[in-house]
Lab assay of single mutants.
Amino acid sequence: MIVFVRFNSSHGFPVEVDSDTSIFQLKEVVAKRQGVPADQLRVIFAGKELRNDWTVQNCDLDQQSIVHIVQRPWRKGQEMNATGGDDPRNAAGGCEREPQSLTRVDLSSSVLPGDSVGLAVILHTDSRKDSPPAGSPAGRSIYNSFYVYCKGPCQRVQPGKLRVQCSTCRQATLTLTQGPSCWDDVLIPNRMSGECQSPHCPGTSAEFFFKCGAHPTSDKETSVALHLIATNSRNITCITCTDVRSPVLVFQCNSRHVICLDCFHLYCVTRLNDRQFVHDPQLGYSLPCVAGCPNSLIKELHHFRILGEEQYNRYQQYGAEECVLQMGGVLCPRPGCGAGLLPEPDQRKVTCEGGNGLGCGFAFCRECKEAYHEGECSAVFEASGTTTQAYRVDERAAEQARWEAASKETIKKTTKPCPRCHVPVEKNGGCMHMKCPQPQCRLEWCWNCGCEWNRVCMGDHWFDV
């Protein structure tokens, strides 16, 4: 396979590697080409510095992935760790964990309700045991953590790749202090920090972006993250068709209702045909949960890209028209025109101005929308079919299609509260000796007794199943 190397943020060049090629071997190839010592090179990928003893497969490097290699003399205490030698983080029983690669970060837990604080980093599902597709590297999971809308060759929703760059020099040479644990960490600028490894760059702020994971991409090709779309790892039924499908869209209502993408497309087109989208002054033209839940309008309007190009163009047109109407304007009634106009409040005669090729020149009556006339309008008909009709959803289907309910059931079956801080902690095999993952707590306690870890627990039921 081919990976592209950008040395000291210059133009990239291809390097041929195998899945079992080590990072140090990659350094040696680059060092020979650039005429520099291999031990002064640092390989940066997806916000993480890659260790010498890791392989291309370990690092989730795919065909035509772009890695950054910078030349920086080692500072005291760094060289041993980078070589894969006596790194205290690798000691058996050590409590410190390697910062998780962005290629394996899962933010789907952050669609849980606000009262489930902490689960994004504490609760991990076991539903990723799908067998890898044919042709994928051994052991590589097909679980997708992110979804994007690819405006490039795909023109559809695709699995996405999370990447990070330095907000100062805009190069992907920043190593994160810690990985993101929720969508806010990724979507809110300057929320996460790190250290830029580019020479002479003092940058410390992280800037995240997404790429389409279905095809090789260049540095400049980015895609918009659709953070309401998630892999259906909890096997929730769709609120409309009641099938279990994946991926799904999880509405931001209190129940976190789930809808499959085909039904979401149908829901949007139906509402669009009836012009029953909601115009929100802050958000724009949007839709609420299909069950009509309060405070559930979709905030990231790129989710409506699921409509496809033709329907999305209609959505944008109707949204612009609705904006004009909300501002007190009118639409030209001549067939084939429909231009938005903003006449004076007491102006009865409205002319669709033909300047700049935008208007048709038609003069019409503001009251009856017919060709302009003197005197009273002959008839004014009330528009028919403008009443909002509820999208029919079966109550039982709505009850079963809740992301929140599956989460709470998982928590109930696989977790116990920490005796000190009461945060839910998952036990997935292993011994009875637990350690609270909350940095402010870190209590060592017994899963069996529910009390602080002691010699009695150690001698009596340390390794009970």
Rank of each mutant, 00 (worst) to 15 (best):
71 Q>N: 06
265 H>R: 04
302 H>A: 14
316 Q>N: 12
58 N>L: 06
137 P>D: 14
320 A>K: 11
101 S>F: 08
255 S>Q: 11
254 N>P: 13
243 D>P: 01
101 S>L: 10
330 V>L: 10
266 L>H: 06
101 S>R: 09
23 I>L: 01
239 I>A: 08
204 T>W: 04
336 G>R: 07
87 D>W: 13
299 K>N: 10
449 C>F: 01
154 C>Q: 01
193 S>H: 13
442 R>S: 11
390 A>E: 15
317 Q>R: 15
224 V>W: 09
145 S>D: 00
312 Y>L: 04
326 Q>W: 05
407 S>V: 07
24 F>S: 11
22 S>A: 06
49 E>Y: 01
194 G>D: 00
34 Q>C: 12
137 P>W: 10
278 V>Q: 11
448 N>E: 03
255 S>I: 04
95 C>L: 15
336 G>V: 06
3 V>L: 15
305 R>A: 11
95 C>E: 15
270 T>L: 05
442 R>K: 14
391 Y>P: 07
67 V>I: 10
402 R>T: 10
384 S>G: 07
176 L>V: 09
202 P>K: 14
375 G>E: 10
240 T>G: 14
425 V>Y: 07
443 L>E: 07
212 C>N: 01
145 S>H: 07
199 P>F: 06
356 N>K: 08
170 R>L: 08
373 H>N: 02
131 S>C: 11
244 V>F: 04
193 S>F: 12
26 L>N: 01
134 A>V: 11
447 W>E: 09
142 I>N: 14
426 E>M: 13
164 V>C: 05
206 A>Y: 02
46 A>F: 04
200 H>Y: 08
324 V>W: 04
8 N>E: 05
68 H>P: 01
125 T>H: 12
82 A>Q: 13
136 S>Y: 10
54 W>N: 05
193 S>I: 11
257 H>R: 00
7 F>C: 03
114 G>C: 12
78 Q>M: 13
210 F>K: 01
320 A>N: 13
324 V>C: 12
463 F>W: 02
447 W>C: 05
326 Q>I: 07
398 A>S: 12
185 D>K: 02
128 R>L: 12
272 L>P: 01
304 F>P: 00
331 L>Q: 06
317 Q>F: 06
370 E>N: 07
424 P>V: 06
13 F>I: 07
162 L>W: 00
270 T>H: 04
207 E>R: 07
314 R>C: 02
267 Y>F: 06
